[in-house]
Write a protein that binds this DNA or RNA. Structure first.
Lengths: 356, 356
DNA sequence: AAAACTTCCGAAACCGATTTCGGTTGCTTT
DNA sequence: AAAGCAACCGAAATCGGTTTCGGAAGTTTT
């Protein structure tokens, strides 16, 4: 049971049949008698036969494999969502016994050449890409190659391909509305470089929410920084050192929000009391932040599964533009949102509600 | 340039050569004249030819692919290290143009059958598995199958296969020594279920460190709980409600340590002052915990790269038992370790050193 | 100028499956 | 009993490459 790999040929010899008969028996062809079919099945089990996939896929003409293109690290950042996404993707593929390949390139031109090779060499039948740029060249390439794909996120012009995204703009409108109800009139925004579409969307949401509620549109309230916790710290520092600092800050990511909290601590301001902070991502760790971070959570577990299903549908011939799914983020209230404190910037801890 | 896939045959026809000549030209055979070689190369580029990998690998007899077996979620836990590990693995494989497959199974018997299929169907030339059980059946299976593999972590008996691990036992001795120097005499241990070998190792380190330093060996100081933050909270609760609670706690993971911090807060104890807490993993997020978590960090980025290199060496024929690499964890001091406070359990915030 | 080498390329087997097509059996029709 | 019809299986082509082997040119040796 250990030794040599058992091919269709040796299995056939073992049974006194030909390879074609054995193959058809294993693949449930109608012209094989039930008794030989069962006999073949049994022998295959005993000998531990499993069809060579390279041969099989060469023959049937599809690699039965899709590829997830891992996003490069942005900054020194980890990507905690990758594991969950892969789990969901794998689940969708497992139902068909397809394989999941992961690929990553150092550079963005590396991405381009590696996509082209993956497709041209017949290794993958479809590709999932994450976190596209505003105008992402990979999408045009995939379209030119005629390779089925689905995007986790969107680009600026997202009409002619399949994507699954969380509505960042809507989420930020929600956040602004929430803060407005808490009495905030000057709300700061900490953003990421606008080459990423998600960064633009969330800024759009902020802008719309602020305008819609008639809040301050002071351009100084918008701070773009490096997409890391340190970036968040720096941006929050700028905001709080403004002559007229905001009473609340929304951040494009939890990581940046965590950084922002540090800036508040450094100024002896209490998040959620002196200044409200809302992050984005719903990272589990935010629960243990100081204080626990209020955030806009996305249903990550679901994303992988859906991306897989969508991609398989497209490979099966469905029209890509039928798959443009927008999920809503939902507000997870923890401890960093609270009523506006108009004295922010001055120490005023008398309004704390928590006992002890 | 978009349309049909260009095979060796059409490339040969385009050039007026035979497939065998073209193939040998592309593979640098000596019996092809430099001029035709260059001519072939150029045409291949222009037509965007890329050898079909299923055909190629069938022919050369190796899948040129390795598989990473994703660990199942333990508890409701995320696995932030997976992305980094995959990045390192991919890097090692990229050097040879090999592919990286990821696979995951719901159950542990699912793991067994999926390993067997992956190997028997010739899809992978080697496998990486993470976080083995004390006595992990997957290892025996892989050995029986004759499939090259390397383990990220170790089992109880780890003499006859390749592994890469961080020395959890040594790390916990280090932690205990550190706490002893800070004056702690009663140190609690929050562990995970001992079916995982890493859980046993870290407990062993704790036991050895405590014995070596002549500290309290009260069995009540050892608490095993679910491998989640809530498990950590529960275990820390038990410890602190002891008649004679510890002045410090070491935890088998950062996640459990974060949970432990919650238990301390609930009792109005200040981590790092009233009770010291040391985690394990070096999660980046610990930096933003309340307060920032002191931890034993492991060099995760390195792990993937090494695992990939080791596996490739074994596939090349190297002896697996030559690759048994033990990395050291190092203490990252943040804010949750401090001098022993013998009044722990009673509220005493007068010794805080931090201003404001 | 014939023999002996090189140099370079084509023919064909092979990797391990799938799938079409055709040909035996054995059994039912008249 | 001859013809017709299922049911069942084998032969062979095919997928797209790699690799061995042999042979036709062109060059050098005698």
């Amino acid at each position: 049971m250990a030794g040599k790999t058992v091919s269709l040929k040796v299995l056939a010899a073992h049974l006194g049949l030909t390879v074609s008969t054995v193959s058809r028996a294993l693949n449930d062809y109608a012209d094989i008698s039930p008794v030989t079919r069962d006999r073949v099945r049994k022998a295959a089990d005993e000998l531990g036969y499993s069809a060579n996939q390279n041969a099989r896929r060469l023959s049937i003409g599809t690699p039965e494999t899709v590829c997830y293109l891992m996003p490069r690290q942005i900054g020194a950042n980890v990507q905690p969502f990758v594991a969950q996404l892969l789990a969901g993707l794998g689940e969708a593929l497992n139902d068909r016994n397809w394989d999941l390949l992961v690929s990553q390139a150092e550079t963005s031109v590396g991405d381009m050449t590696s996509i082209e090779r993956l497709v041209r060499s017949g290794r993958v039948a479809g590709i999932v890409i994450s976190r596209p740029l505003k105008n992402d060249p990979r999408i045009k390439l995939l379209q030119q190659l005629g390779c089925p794909f689905v995007v986790h996120g969107r680009t600026a012009n997202s009409v002619d391909y399949a994507w699954y995204d969380v509505d960042g703009e809507d989420a930020f409108v929600t956040a602004i509305n929430h803060l407005e109800r808490l009495g905030h009139r000057r709300i700061g925004f900490i953003g990421a470089p606008l080459q990423y579409q998600f960064a633009q969307e969330r800024l759009d949401g902020y802008t719309r929410g602020v305008a819609h509620n008639g809040l301050s549109q002071d351009p100084d309230l918008v701070q773009i920084a490096e997409f890391t916790d340190d970036g968040g710290t720096a941006a929050a520092g700028v905001l709080m050192d403004l002559p007229n600092p905001p009473t609340a800050i929304v951040c494009v990511s939890d990581m940046m929000a965590l950084g922002a909290l540090e800036a508040l601590h450094a100024r002896s301001l209490t998040p959620g009391e002196d200044v409200s902070v809302i992050g984005y991502d719903g990272l589990y760790f935010g629960k243990h932040a100081n204080p626990p971070l209020t955030t806009l959570a996305q249903p990550q577990a679901h994303a992988g599964r859906r991306l897989g299903d969508i991609l398989l549908s497209i490979i099966d011939g469905a029209d890509p533009i039928k798959f443009q799914e927008l999920q809503r983020a939902h507000l997870v209230q923890r401890m960093t949102d609270g009523p506006a404190n108009v004295d922010a910037g001055q120490e005023d801890v008398s309004v704390r509600e928590e006992p002890q």
